[in-house]
Write a protein that binds this DNA or RNA. Structure first.
Length: 556
RNA sequence: GCGCCUGUAGCUCAGUCGGAUAGAGCAACUGCCUUCUAAGCAGUGGGUCAGGGGUUCGAAUCCCUUCAGGCGCGCCA
């Protein structure tokens, strides 16, 4: 709807002999009474044209009125030089009909055009259960993936599993120590080991499966088994938690795989480092192997291989990102916790050094979540094993509510998550407000069915939308027609939260309408028209909720 | 010390690429269920957009600076 006015504006400007700027600013005016659409274009042009803005606005408005034809009810000049456009009722209603006839195709802009994009998110180390911060990443990543998929991208969701290195070894040793404890053998618990109860649970399960067969063994001897087993079990638990949150991945990429020697005796990581070395971006110093990250804008050079001979996490991460680029994706999106932000320059530096476009990778930072209960911070210490897991939060407040809370914030905003507030089954949870609108509409449908009103095409096909003449109805129709613009903006900006706010606003128009006007009445024509309107509302609500990954219940 | 993020109503947060008189929910207060679901509706009050400078016809938005909070600056992951 906005796009058509943009075109009309372009035509108008050309007709006046003005060069239209690349970006034509159009937006909804703040006050409803000012119209449906507003542009400050005349003021923007005032300087270069050396004419008063209102004079320019007059000229543009005249042309615009011509170009718009019957679509516009009026075109006005207001304030310092705004051009305000009000659409005609017929135009609105005609467009509304397209939501019903075209459905999703009308709502969603194809901006991806089949391009492939990979979204990597969560990627938590399999050394413990997911916590709420991971949940935020999961909610945002899944919603963004849905959004991009709906916008015509071919999306692959990937979880990078850090199943190699010291941290998982420590997990294995922690479990090993607990296992020995269960076997009444003596093994010192590692100093910085993982102390959560889940470690004991894993040890117990191993005891059940293996008996005391590893009793008294050396960790050097049994370490691999314990590490691999613990890691696999932890990963299974993580998958289950994500499933419970309604988040699924297409690929689980193992870090360990990147270290596996292939036929030539080299691993993916070896190859990557060799390739960097061949390009002259690697040097040896103080017994370690370094990457010249400073050549590509990073603060300092970074170690790839430690003095002890092991690769750093960074080394495998370069290999991983190389793998992603080589897989041929058009775009890569990484969703990281904000505490890793210092890591961005080095990864981008590595991509550039490898000869790739560093802009191919976009990193979306998700801020830390502060968990509160009744306004007081919940103390968490991963070392001591005291923390609230994502699963516990979902069990307590529900998956839909948890997601919705995450998706009503910009990802980079610091977030206070209060368990008491979140689980209050009141309107304090805006998610219910939106879901309730959907449930109410379904209730209307059930009622209509009982009254013997036909359904589906037989119903919508007969509806004469011009009968929708209440101000609330036109407002609702306009709001519905704004959805494609909101959708497109959200997809382009990678900001699912715009959908969340839109849905709340739409529900905020529906509820008063519901309260004031009956949809199903004795007036058959009006009933059919209103049923068509609320059907369009439910279509949009459902589409938006599905992008957010939030359920749309037909009853509440 | 340097870098990144944040600071908007009592609380939690939106605010499009710089546009008109600053927004929502919650909390507080007053009303509304014989009627398609009251998880709802109608109404009231609530602001130095952290402070200060600058750019602009116009700034919550851009620039500089100060203050406050968070995070990061490892041969950790």
């Amino acid at each position: 709807m906005f796009a058509s006015v943009e075109n009309s504006l372009r035509q108008a400007l050309k007709a006046l002999g003005m060069e239209p700027p690349e970006r034509i600013e159009v937006g909804a005016p703040r006050e409803e009474a000012w119209g449906d659409l507003s542009t400050p274009i005349a003021m923007s042009l005032a300087k270069q044209l050396k004419k008063p803005p209102r004079e320019i606005a007059q000229a543009i408005a005249a042309k615009l009125t011509e170009a718009g034809g019957a679509a516009f009810e009026k075109v006005e000049i207001a304030g310092p030089g705004f051009i305000n456009v009000t659409f005609s009722g017929d135009f609105i209603v005609e467009k509304l009909g397209r939501i019903l006839s075209q459905g999703q195709a009308f709502l969603r802009a194809d901006i991806g055009k089949g391009k492939t994009v990979q979204v990597e998110f969560v990627s938590a180390n399999p050394t413990g259960p997911l916590h709420l911060g991971h949940g935020r990443g999961a909610a945002v990543g899944a919603a963004l993936s849905n959004l991009l998929a709906a916008a015509g991208f071919r999306v692959t969701k990937e979880y990078y599993v850090n199943d190699a290195g010291r941290q998982v070894a420590l997990l294995g040793e922690s479990v090993f120590a607990r296992y020995q404890e269960l076997c009444e053998a003596d093994y010192p618990f590692p100093d910085d080991g993982y102390r959560g109860d889940y470690i004991m649970d894993i040890a117990r399960q191993i005891t059940e499966a293996e008996g005391d067969k590893h009793k008294g063994q050396d960790f050097a001897q049994a370490g691999n088994y314990f590490t691999e087993k613990s890691c696999a079990m932890m990963l299974a638990a993580i998958k289950k938690d994500l499933e419970g949150f309604g988040v699924a991945f297409d690929i689980w990429q193992s870090e360990k795989e990147l270290y596996k020697k292939r036929e030539g005796g080299e691993s993916e990581v070896d190859d990557t480092i060799n390739s960097l070395r061949a390009k002259g971006f690697v040097y040896d110093s103080e017994g370690a192997v370094w990457f010249k990250a400073t050549l590509f804008g990073d603060e300092k050079d970074r170690v790839l291989k430690k003095g002890g001979g092991q690769y750093t996490y960074f080394a495998s991460d370069i290999a991983y990102h190389k793998l992603k680029v080589d897989a041929g994706y058009d775009e890569l999106i990484d969703i990281w916790g904000a505490d890793h932000h210092g890591y961005i320059p080095r990864v981008k530096a590595a991509l550039e050094a490898l000869g790739y476009n560093r802009e191919k990778l976009r990193v979306l930072l998700v801020q830390i979540v502060n968990l509160l209960r009744g306004g007081k911070p919940v103390q968490m210490s991963k070392r001591a094993g005291e923390f609230v897991t994502l699963k516990e939060v979902i069990d307590e407040v529900g998956a839909d509510t948890t997601k919705f809370i995450f998706l009503t914030r910009r990802p980079d905003s610091h977030l206070d998550f209060d368990l008491e507030t979140a689980k209050a089954a009141s309107a304090e949870n805006p998610v219910y407000y939106v879901q309730y609108a959907f449930a109410r509409i379904n209730s209307i449908f059930r009622h209509a069915r009982e009254k013997g009103i036909p359904e589906g095409e037989a119903r919508t096909g007969q509806a004469d939308l011009r009968l929708l003449s209440e101000p609330e109805e036109l407002k609702l129709a306009k709001k519905l027609l704004a959805y494609p613009t909101v959708f497109e903006g959200a997809a382009r900006a990678h900001e699912p939260h715009r959908i969340t706010y839109y849905l709340q606003e739409l529900a905020g128009l529906f509820h008063p309408y519901y309260n004031r006007h009956k949809v199903v009445t004795d007036d058959t024509g009006l009933t059919l028209a209103r049923l068509a309107l609320v059907e369009a509302i439910s279509t949009v609500l459902k589409d938006g909720l599905s992008i957010l990954g939030v359920s749309a219940p037909e009853r509440m």
